[in-house]
Design a protein around this nucleic acid. Structure first.
Lengths: 346, 346
DNA sequence: ATGAAAGCGCTAACAC
DNA sequence: GTGTTAGCGCTTTCAT
């Protein structure tokens, strides 16, 4: 008497169709239903047929929470970005999702929003879901956060940046080198009075540092002198960026080149230059960062640094999938480099 | 003898710290640990203290899969977008994540990529995780998919578009009306020879239809005549869009206004117009769609349609949270409208 | 090739 | 305010 009551209750309680229900309809045991879905090749053809039929008729959708609990495999990958609004991460997220999807994994997305306070809570929410892997971008992990990540033993890929001491694996590029490359490029073009308009985030500061180092090496800076820089508070807007050029010109009227921390900032600089009648590139060279979609269409077309976000996303996903399969990753640290896209603005 | 062996095995098997371990360290029962984390106000202050201490010392991170299974609350919200790469959805995703985060929920992200074949598999992966709610964007749900969604009884919000017959709830705006509004605007500005350069997706087609309807009403079209339209295959690129204007001018040399399906397309049109020496807006008016970040910075500044993506995301999240709390949503269908941002290009 | 039993880690329900 | 018992729905393990 207790048994039938229990099964009736199960159906009533949550309204959910379970393996038991499908099993009953198919005339098999629950485990056979499980096998039909996970290892169909292990079943006789007609049994498989019966189960599939029962699945369709009952509208059964497996509870992945239960399966994940038992098998300790959630099938999800978590990713944390400072923000998804910026177009910079879009192609990375896109290719990450696509590649994971090809392998039957889902992406769980978190935004750190550069707020350290929320960061640890976010990590707990992630680790607590026992993901197959974690993709980290732009987080300056707290000591505590780092400890938890390591303790979780979950495979981790740090992206975008190429950290000097990755927690586990990394795919990215060297921000300092991009700054150096741009400085050298401008110098080769005969520019000598350079400045920066830069968003105030960690990676942009790294690029600025690289730029400064190259300038020093090229003899553009006297001892102790710094590259004039206007820091645009995040999130960088067009108006802010225009103001940046204005401010720089106030201090340095003979300015002849500006390296911007993003294409959007560069667009603001371009706009301000136009408003002031400063010809680009004749009078002022402008270089952006990111090669966003619009960079090719503005006037003059923007010279900028291109990053292969799609490759980063794909590589990160593949590393995690490799690890999830229990294999070791041959190349756990990948530098995807960057390229300088030369257009009209410099 | 069996009991201690079992608990020793538990520790060894997965290496994971569980409620039992924390309970033992704190000298309480497992349920008390659970309560310390979920309903701390129900515990005595010193007990709470002891448990928190034990949690910190053991490095315990609750297994949310197990908790979710038992309580039938996964704490996740799933969202499906055609693509996250396009900047159009960025602010929507951003505010969705932010709002969910404020309420302790995580976002699971899926990309349908406009592929119907993957769509049902994606839905199973989502429904199988028993999310608190589902946000749908730009999916033309298959009959089967729709049936599964309804059967799952999971709260659903359709966004971006305002479907005529939503599955459950909806936040969006009327695409046809934006097309109408732009046509009327251009007409009021004295334009009579209008055309469209449009990406080939469903919503853009709706806007084109609205544009055509208004043109007909205004007497701009003869019986059976259509608005000349160049369809840009997705994903729309700058080069494609430039080609679009070129093609239109071939057929209609006295063209005096173009409505584009996105700001990026509009930028391509602007670029082509410049290359041909067609002055904007004097000779050719150009209107975009989306009010992307760069719209204000290009030359001439782009007149465009602005959509409040942040409001959509916030509203969608709040609706789902409301439902998750067992309350009914007062206004299950919300029209966030749009606004025409008038700048120099038209 | 299929089934029975057990248990993943947590919390709802009910005691006290 | 705290503990005991049971079970969420699935899959691992072992048996046949």
């Amino acid at each position: 008497m207790a048994k039938p009551a229990a099964s009736r209750k199960r159906l009533a309680t949550r309204g959910g169709v379970t393996v038991h229900d499908v099993a009953r309809v198919a005339g098999v045991s629950p485990i056979t239903v499980s096998r039909a879905l996970n290892t169909p090749q292990a079943l006789a053809a007609d049994t498989l047929e019966r189960v599939k039929d029962a699945v369709a008729r009952t509208g059964y959708v497996p509870n992945l929470l239960a399966g994940g609990l038992r098998s300790a495999r959630s099938g999800m990958v978590a990713a944390v970005f400072p923000t998804v609004a910026g177009p910079v991460f879009a192609s990375l997220i896109q290719s990450l999702t696509d590649t994971l999807d090809e392998h039957g994994h889902q992406l769980m997305l978190g935004q750190s929003g550069y707020r350290h306070s929320r960061e640890d809570a976010l990590l707990d929410a992630i680790i607590g879901r026992r993901p197959v892997g974690i993709v980290l971008t732009g987080m300056a992990h707290s000591a505590e956060g780092r400890r938890r990540l390591v303790a979780s033993r979950i495979p981790i890929v740090e992206t975008w940046d190429l950290s000097p001491s990755p927690i586990d694996m990394a795919v990215g590029f060297d921000h300092e080198r991009t700054g150096e490359a741009v400085c050298e490029f401008l110098h080769a073009r005969g520019r000598r009075r350079m400045a920066l308009v830069s968003g105030d985030d960690q990676r942009a500061r790294r690029r600025a540092a690289g730029f400064t180092r190259a300038a020093r090496k090229l003899g553009l800076l006297a001892r102790g002198e710094e590259i004039p820089t206007h820091w645009v508070p995040a999130p960088a807007s067009l108006a802010n960026s225009r103001g940046g050029l204005a401010a720089l010109l106030g201090k340095m009227p003979d300015l002849d080149a500006v390296f911007c921390s993003s294409d959007l900032v560069a667009l603001g600089v371009l706009t301000e230059a136009y408003a002031r009648g400063l010809r680009v590139p004749e009078r002022l060279a402008v270089v952006g960062f990111g090669d966003l979609e619009f960079a090719d269409g503005v006037l003059p077309a923007l010279t900028t640094v291109r990053i292969d976000g799609a490759r980063m996303g794909r590589t990160a996903a593949e590393m995690l999938i490799e690890r999830a399969a229990g294999r070791t990753v041959a190349e756990p640290i990948v530098d995807v480099g960057f390229s300088l896209v030369q257009r009209a603005s410099a």
